[in-house]
């Protein structure tokens, strides 16, 4: 692939992605008063993150089993209200350990 073509690909991706982010933020300047829309916006991040996490998390490592172990570790630590980075690192470690154990077993 030549550099010019790579560059055009990147520009297309960047422009489309930026416009999606920029237009609503610049065009909507008034505070929305509608209680239902405000409630929707309040619940939205939890719906987005829930949908993005599962089932995708199961396929984020080299085996569904190790991913499930990592997910369990994350849920437990998050339930204990540990910080974002603690939970993220601990789930990686759990996956690593689970895969090491699986290597021994098989």
């Amino acid at each position: 692939m030549d550099n010019a073509r790579i560059l055009i690909y990147i520009i297309v991706m960047a422009v489309v992605t930026y416009l999606i982010r920029m237009l609503p933020l610049t065009l909507i300047k008034k505070k929305i008063k509608n209680r239902y829309i405000l409630s929707f916006l309040y619940y939205m991040p939890y719906a987005v993150l829930g949908a993005m996490t599962f089932p995708a998390i199961l396929f984020s490592t080299s085996s569904v089993i190790s991913a499930a172990v990592g997910m369990a570790a994350a849920v437990i630590l998050a339930y204990m209200k540990k910080s974002l980075i603690t939970v993220a690192v601990a789930s990686c470690l759990a996956v690593y350990v689970a895969e090491a154990i699986m290597q021994v077993i098989y």
Binding site: P45, M52, A78, V95
Partner: peptide
């Protein structure tokens, strides 16, 4: 492989406490 789960761990850390 282990690093692949990091982003989802973060998502979980955001949604579970609330």
């Amino acid at each position: 492989s282990a690093m692949g789960i990091a982003i989802y761990g973060m998502f979980i850390a955001i949604v579970v406490p609330p």
